[in-house]
């Protein structure tokens, strides 16, 4: 239908108002502030060019945070995709109780990151945790909580996030996988394809553009990891699990160093926007279903 100018105004104005005031404006103001010495109760504000950025990038703690979050993203996102896809693949055909299973499998994602952090602090721990219970049954000695181990802490945090997010990936992929007509599956089996063949030639093509979109979402989420590390490790042991978001928060609100906090926040934004550019470029070459 043809939309008049008034129509368009009516349609776009609410969203424009909402986003302008509570997302775009703060983001832009924040960006401007990073080039100055602004802080909420600074008595005078001066332009300072890239000084804040230089200070942040030169801070070994930020460097450690950036390195940690890069590792985090590069490990967590593929794992979430693979595990999420595998579970969705297993559920692709209807069976008795599948609906109930789908809801149950959604539960980890329904747990907030902070709740999951609280939960896993205890579950990894000794006296009442899952890990030592299982080890005890297997007759093996107790393992101390990986959250206290310099080499294992980041992996433990990654594992917790993968636990939480892989079901969400399943949730997103399952409708598409489940709607592949049965003939396609039968064709593939008849033509002698193994399960890898079926995955590659039947399942993946049905969800390829979706996978790209999901990857973008997961990447943005991983780059902004905050809630989980806040509770699970506080960024430790040492600097093993600091993330840029945690760094920003501690600087801006913990020790009142607003310019540094705001600047590192914008660096996170820049990374996500960069990933977004790649996403847009890549999805241009794909054809939407």
């Amino acid at each position: 239908m043809r939309l008049t100018r008034r129509d368009r105004l009516f349609l776009f104005a609410p969203l424009a108002f909402l986003l302008a005031g509570w997302l775009v404006l703060p983001a832009l103001l924040g960006l401007l502030a990073t080039f100055s010495t602004y802080s909420p109760f600074a008595t005078s504000v001066q332009f300072s060019g890239l000084a804040n950025y230089a200070a942040v990038v030169r801070d070994p703690l930020f460097v450690a945070a950036a390195r940690n979050v890069a590792v985090f993203t590069l490990v967590a996102v593929p794992l979430e995709l693979v595990i999420g896809f595998s579970v969705a693949y297993m559920l692709r055909r209807p069976f008795q109780g599948r609906a109930a299973l789908r809801v149950l499998l959604l539960l980890p994602w329904l747990v907030s990151p902070i709740a999951s952090g609280v939960m896993w602090h205890f579950l990894f721990g000794g006296a009442t945790g899952i890990v030592d219970f299982v080890l005890g049954w297997l007759g093996r000695p107790d393992m101390p909580s990986p959250l206290g181990d310099l080499r294992l802490a980041l992996l433990a945090v990654i594992a917790v996030e993968v636990w939480r997010m892989a079901p969400f990936v399943t949730f997103l992929l399952l409708p598409s996988l489940a709607s592949i007509p049965t003939e396609r599956w039968e064709e593939a089996t008849l033509s002698g394809a193994s399960w890898t063949g079926r995955v590659r030639h039947v399942a993946i093509p049905a969800v390829r553009p979706l996978l790209l979109t999901i990857t973008m979402l997961l990447t943005g989420l991983s780059l902004g990891t905050f809630d989980a590390v806040l509770i699970l490790t506080g960024g430790g042991p040492g600097t093993a699990t600091v993330t840029p978001a945690l760094y920003s928060y501690n600087r801006a609100f913990g020790v009142n160093d607003w310019p540094v906090g705001a600047t590192s926040g914008w660096l996170i934004a820049a990374a996500v926007l960069g990933a977004g550019l790649i996403y847009v470029r890549l999805s241009r070459t794909k054809v939407a279903d």
Partner: peptide, 8 residues
């Protein structure tokens, strides 16, 4: 102390 003391 406990082996996970750094997370306690």
């Amino acid at each position: 102390g406990p082996p996970e003391q750094l997370n306690q």
